[in-house]
Each structure stands twice: as C-alpha cells, then as structure tokens.
Design a binder for these strands. Structure first.
Length: 559
DNA sequence: AGGCGGTACTG
DNA sequence: CAGTAC
DNA sequence: GCCT
C-alpha cells in the first residue's frame, strides 16, 4: 500500500493563499495527504507563488509585503531568519505531474534583490545547502505554534557549529605565516597610543593601515611597495622604511608608564580619553587620588564604574547570557505578554564569550515610544524588585525617583553630600545597567583564564566583587516595530560591519542609522525620506551587501 | 581643506 | 556645550 | 593618520 504523495508534510504558501490558482493547488495538496499551515512549525515547507520569483530570486520584497495576507509577525519571522529556505510553488505542480517528490533544491528561491558578485556568496550558498540536509531530522525541540523571533535566533545560533566547519575549509584561516610582523607590531602600538590619547582619527588611520598590511600576504620590502597599499600614505610609508632599515621605530618600544595608566583609568566605565588624559598629565596615579583632585569628574555613573571595575572587565560565558535573557523574559511576560526581548550583540554573532549582554525590546505592531517606554519602566522596576538590577547607568525621571536611595548610598560612600536630583526626561529609549543572577543559577565556573585588569590596592575600597557570581553589564534598547530591522543591524554589529554599511549608504546619498535607511536631504530643509527600516535583509540588499547571517558579521576592516 | 557614524544620556 | 557610551 |  502507498501513502498519498504529501503525507505528513505541511505547507505555507506565500504571500497569500487567496488567489484562485493557489486555492486550486491547496485542494490538490489536501487531496494528496498534505496540510496547510499559516505559521511556522517544524518542517514546514515554505513555498513562494512563482509570480513573485524571477529566476530563483525573489522579486521586490515590498510588492511581496503589500500582498501579504498573514499576520505581521510571521512576515518578520520569515525575513529575519537567515536559515530558512524558500521554494517555488511550481515544485508542487511538478511533483504532482510526476507523481513523486522531486528534489526541492532545483526550485530554491533566494530572498535578495541585488547580487554584486561579492566573493563570499558561494560560501554562503554552501552553508545553506550544508544545513538543509541535516535540519530536517535534528530540529525536534519546539512543537509550539507560538514561537517567535527569539526562537528563530536561537535556532540559527545552534547552527553556528555547522557553519564554522564550512568556513574552516573554504577560507584562508590557516595561513599562519605573518611575513610583516615587525611592521604590524609597530602599527598596532601606534594605533593604541593614539587611541589612548583620544586622537581617534589618527588612531583609525593606523588601524586601517595595519589591516591592509595584514591582508597583504607577501613580505613588504620597500617604501614603494608599502605606499601602493590602501590606507598607507607618505607618513606611514616612511615609518615602514625606517623599520626596514633599522629593525624598529626609534622611541616606540619604551614601555610607557603613562599609557599603562591611561589604560587603567579608561577601563573604568564613564572614564574616557579626555578625562584620563587630564588626570595622567596632572600626575594622578590612582582613582582615589583622582577623586580627591577632581571630585566633579566622579559622576554617579563613574562611581558605579569604579564599584564594578573588575566585574565588568571579565567576559561572560555564552550560556550565562541566555540565563539573563530567560530571567528578563519571565519578568517581561508579567508586564506585557505580547512584548518581546531578544539577544543581539556578540551573542547573536555566535561568540563563545561576550563582553556585555545586548538586548532589544519591542512589541509587535507597536510604534509608540511612549508605550514602549512604559513597558521598559515597569520591567526595570520588576527586575530591581528581584534584586537582579544592582546599578542603573542611565535614568529618566520616574526611575530616578526609584533609584535615588541606591545612588545616594553610593555618592555618600564616595564622600559627597549632595542629594541626587533626577532629570526631567520622561521617556526612556534605552536602559543600561549592571545585573547579577541569583547565585544558585550560576554556571560552571568557566576556566577562561582571562587576563583581567585589576584595581590597584588603594582603589579597591570602593569596589564590590564576588568570586562566584559577577555583576554583568546589560543593555536594553527599545525598538519601534517598524524600525526593528535597522535596530537589529545596529545592535548586532560588529562595529566594522556597521561602519561598512554606513559608508555604503553615504556613497549612495543615503544615511543609515539605528532608525533606518534614509535618503538624506542636506540642502532642502525637508525631512529625510525613509527608504527602509523594518527589514534587515532589505536594508543590506539595498546597500549592495549579500545577506549574511550574524555569525559572519565578525569582520575586520571594511567590506 | 575637510571628511572620517549617528544617536542618547549626563552634568 | 563637552564628554562618554553604544 | 588617509582619502576625496
């Protein structure tokens, strides 16, 4: 006996099942044992009406969107999940014609608009083929209909391992020979030196030069050769000449006591290049001395930076990030059951350890910042009540009242007597804080022997550190629903990736920010025109960047 | 000569 | 406004 | 610092 052709398969047809032709096909599916769904469940086969596909590539996603007949959240799930595969509806009719299940691969439809021959696109292709074969039998964990963007992200993170093995043999990661070590070392020192001095652009100049030498795999033997590389100009080229002749740059290798101090101060949250430089040039050698000499530099959030100086310089194991998220999710459900919070930052890029925990908070369909702000405020209060939030780093008026006692305890400990007056700001667009999990949930003490900056003994009085549970830096960013894509790009990074996108935007007369991709209107004083802000994929594709999953956005230099 | 990211928060 | 952080 |  034979089962009908589509037994056990579920189908989602996009963008709508309303057209008569689609209705006809739906009848055939059901007659052959298949079922229709209107949301993503395991193993759902996603089919695109062929009229929206041009030669294996999805045509304009805005048209796609305008004929959308499912709910908005499904749209977002689909465009935000880089692991999903789409197939042309004609696969179905072919199967019926031949009365057997044909290879879907020949009917794959890709979700992008431009393809500028970027060198890594075949590489991306390889990954999606690679994961497709194993996806079907490994994903058995969630059966719920109510999974959301966050589950999508977790799933794609679970696939990091698979993609890494692919990256390993296709990329040149094994080229361990570094023919220009003397040069790159010197440039790195110069980069650090100027960054510490707050000369960010000069520092950037050295950093870019460093990167172009690193990606040049031959040994550089002349000033001429150096000059021909991008981002290497007369000044750096002549320094290179000197190094080639003398073996090193005069006056660079002395271990600089001042640079060490600058590093020490700037590792404190809230102390930047200007402040650190001022202290150092006035002979200050510790935070305690700085507090006496420059009390006004010690705002309450620098004091928190001091208190958690050591905790905040240790990396967070990936697993712990998920625990923080789970805790916040639970609290958020009680505040607003339809609001969502997701992990972004280096976590979403697949990192094994993260410097901080970056999250985005949104509510499907909600563009009203005031509503979102209220949700965030309530969430923060709940988290504070659970003793999870140990210190705030920014506040609005209402939260200022709530955290006043906590802040005054701190400022009094530092010897200040003024009382804290909360600012006038009513809406809260983001909340940065230090959070600590209850000690019972602590993860296996990871043996990451990380070289951690320690406080000097005389500075350790203000500090609060705990062997088993660390206080972590957590960022919550609000996003309007309509701007979720731009916010996700911005907060997922990495920095160089974002810079590349912004540069591409400016080249096209646009500007990219965390609010979206806009047509800039410099001359006329009209407002900038929105091009796209919701769809992460479309923003990238408009900028001529082939879609890449977060794990591949860990780039160095520009793309 | 002027550009190098755009935005939110603190004081 | 400068300074800091993201 | 380098690039336009």
């Amino acid at each position: 006996m034979k089962c009908p052709l589509f037994t056990g398969l579920s189908f989602l047809i996009l963008p709508s099942i309303e057209p008569p032709r689609v209705q006809f096909i739906v009848k055939l599916i059901e007659a052959n044992g298949g079922s229709m769904v209107d949301s993503l469940i395991n193993d759902t086969v996603i089919l695109i009406n062929d009229t929206f596909v041009e030669s294996h590539t999805l045509r304009k996603s805005e048209l796609f969107h305008s004929e959308w007949s499912y709910d908005e959240e499904l749209w977002y799930k689909l465009v935000s999940n880089e692991q999903l595969e789409f197939f042309k509806l004609s696969w179905l009719s072919e199967c019926l014609k031949h009365q057997k299940l044909l290879d879907k691969a020949d009917f794959r439809a890709r979700l992008m608009e431009e393809d500028n021959g970027n060198s890594n696109s075949p590489h991306v292709d390889a990954i999606s083929i690679e994961t497709q074969s194993s996806a079907e039998d490994t994903e058995v964990e969630d059966q719920t209909l109510d999974f959301d963007v966050q589950t999508e992200l977790l799933k794609s993170d679970a696939n990091v391992m698979a993609s890494q093995s692919v990256i390993e043999d296709t990329s040149e990661s094994k080229s361990t020979v570094k023919p220009n070590l003397a040069l790159t070392r010197a440039l790195e020192q110069l980069f650090k030196k100027y960054r510490l001095q707050g000369d960010t652009y000069r520092a950037r100049g050295y950093q870019l030069a460093l990167q172009s030498i690193e990606s040049h795999d031959k040994a550089i033997t002349s000033e001429q050769e150096a000059l021909s590389l991008p981002n290497i100009g007369p000044s750096i080229a002549s320094k290179i000449q000197t190094i080639l002749k003398l073996g090193s740059l005069p006056g660079l290798n002395e271990a600089d006591k001042n640079e060490e101090l600058l590093d020490y101060f700037m590792a404190c949250h809230g102390v930047g290049a200007q402040t650190a430089r001022k202290w150092v040039s006035n002979g200050i050698t510790s935070l305690t001395e700085a507090l006496k000499a420059y009390p006004s530099d010690f705002t309450w959030n620098v004091l928190f930076g001091w208190r958690f100086y050591e905790d905040w310089s240790v990396k967070i194991p990936r697993e712990e990030c998920a625990d923080h998220l789970a805790l916040m999710e639970k609290a958020l459900r009680d505040v607003d059951s339809s609001a969502r919070i997701v992990l972004t930052g280096s976590y979403r890029r697949g990192a094994a350890t993260c410097g901080d925990i970056d999250t985005v908070l949104y509510k499907p369909g909600c563009d009203d910042i005031w509503t979102l702000s209220q949700i965030l405020e309530k969430l923060v209060l709940r988290l504070k009540g659970m003793n999870y939030i140990r210190c705030p780093l920014n506040l609005n008026h209402a939260l200022g009242q709530e955290f006043k006692p906590m802040i005054e305890t701190l400022t009094h400990a530092a010897g200040f007597h003024e009382s804290y007056v909360s600012g006038p700001k009513e809406v809260l667009k983001k909340f940065y804080f230090g959070g600590k999990l209850p000690s019972n949930t602590t993860h296996g003490l990871s043996k990451t022997e990380q070289q951690v900056p320690r406080l000097k003994f005389e500075d350790s009085l203000m500090s609060e550190s705990d062997q088993n549970t660390h206080c972590r830096r957590v960022d919550i960013l609000l996003s309007r629903w309509s701007q979720l894509g731009a916010v996700m790009i911005y907060f997922t990074g990495n920095d160089d990736f974002n810079k590349s996108l912004r540069i591409r935007a400016t080249k096209r007369g646009w500007k990219l920010s965390n609010n979206g991709l806009y047509q800039s209107n410099a001359n006329t004083e009209k407002k900038d025109l929105l091009i796209e802000s919701f769809d992460e994929r479309r923003i990238m594709s408009l900028l001529g960047v082939v879609w890449c999953p977060p794990e591949e956005r860990n780039i160095k230099g520009y793309i």
